[in-house]
Simulated assay, not measured.
Amino acid sequence: MTYTLERVARQATEAKELAVHTSRALRDLKRGTKSGLSGRDRFVRHAVLRALATGPGVTYEDVWRERYAERAATGPAMITTPNWATELAPVDVGEFLAEGTAPLALSRLAALGRSISLAGIGTLRIPYRPPLAEVGGWIAEGSPIPVDDLSVGTISLWPRKAAAVSVFSAELRKRAVTDIEALLDVALRADLASIIDGALVDDQPGSALRPPGLRYNVAAVAASTATDPLVAMRVDLQKLVGEIVAGGGSSPVFVVNPQQAISLAFVPSFSYPIVDTPAVPRGVVLAVDGPSFISGSGGAVVDASKDAVLHEDTTPLAIGTAGTPPTVAAPVRSLWQTDMLAVRAIIETAWAVPAGRSAWMEGVAW
């Protein structure tokens, strides 16, 4: 009972520290001040604190003091200490996903469009202007001015939850402490990229679980049959740009597999932005009107455990369900029994693009 009460008291203290830090962070943002750490560093440090503070009696403060506090400091690590508790709030998920050697395709595309905060948002309706047939004109003296069409369309955006669980050997805490930041950085980014970027470029509809893929409900443009790869490339790109312009767009961005990105690199003075990602199948090329692409991120949670039980499957089930007969998920892993550590990352994100502002083709010859 004493151990339980101590743990509850510690958790209450940590929650209070987090609330104080969040209030201070908001105040600093208003003042235009911010920690010298990058958003990526803060997010990774947050994951490190969560992962290393899983032992009995180990607190976030203990881990922070051991890894990040000045060794010559004699005072305790407190929320009044510069940077202390900054890493307790995973508020920099957008910067984490956008920075590093392998930023998400979503982040690179979002940088060319419009990004919004989805924190605390239920559903957000964003207006856009559809293609117009008449937009005024030249007039003679004393002649009436043609009336512009002021109608607008709207797209809806609401946060969906992307989550990943990464499992590591518990020896990570003992033997790879110096490299744990790099390891968690790469692992979390790779896991989230496979989920988010995979959905971004596919052809599946949106649902309560995920946003729609850029290829959903968009008919594929026929690829060129020219045998010369450069000729085929020119024809294919012209077709895709034509689709974007016809839909009311003006600034196409090409989203491609790295193989097609290499081919585009050989085009002299290619002026359109390119986003390459393995999530796009080879031979598939997408075009998106950059300014029309809307995306956002909301809350983020990073947790760690060495006591949980996991159903290791791509479509996990409840560990056990009642019924006749009762069913049990398999295979399962006990982190405690196998001395493993699991880090769980959950982020809220969403994206949307107006109809006609995306196009794609498959089977390109270059």
Rank of each mutant, 00 (worst) to 15 (best):
W351G: 03
A89R: 04
A164M: 00
M78P: 00
Q260Y: 10
R282K: 14
E17T: 09
A265L: 10
V231D: 06
G57E: 10
V245H: 08
A133C: 03
E61S: 13
A51T: 09
V152D: 13
D303R: 15
G296A: 11
A72S: 14
V280K: 01
G242C: 09
K30R: 15
A222H: 05
S115R: 15
G249V: 11
P103E: 04
D185H: 07
L52E: 03
R10F: 14
F270T: 09
V135N: 08
V165W: 00
T315C: 01
S207W: 06
A51Q: 04
G57L: 12
E362W: 02
W351R: 06
T225Y: 01
A170P: 05
A318K: 09
T4G: 12
K16H: 14
S295H: 06
A119R: 12
S334V: 07
D149Y: 07
A19N: 12
D62E: 12
I196F: 06
F43I: 08
E99S: 15
A19R: 15
W360V: 04
V328L: 13
K161N: 13
L150A: 10
M340I: 00
A355R: 12
V48A: 02
A110N: 02
R160G: 02
A345M: 10
P331W: 12
G137T: 11
I126A: 09
I116E: 11
V44H: 00
T54N: 07
I126C: 00
E362I: 04
R175D: 05
D289R: 02
A170N: 11
R67Y: 01
I196D: 04
G153C: 05
R7N: 13
P212C: 02
L124D: 05
G356H: 11
D149A: 10
A69N: 07
F266H: 11
T349C: 15
I294Y: 09
I196L: 14
L183P: 00
A163K: 13
S156M: 04
A51H: 06
D92M: 07
S143F: 10
A15L: 13
R65S: 11
G356Y: 14
L132C: 06
G249Q: 07
G113C: 05
H21Y: 14
E362H: 00
P205A: 14
T81A: 09
L264Y: 14
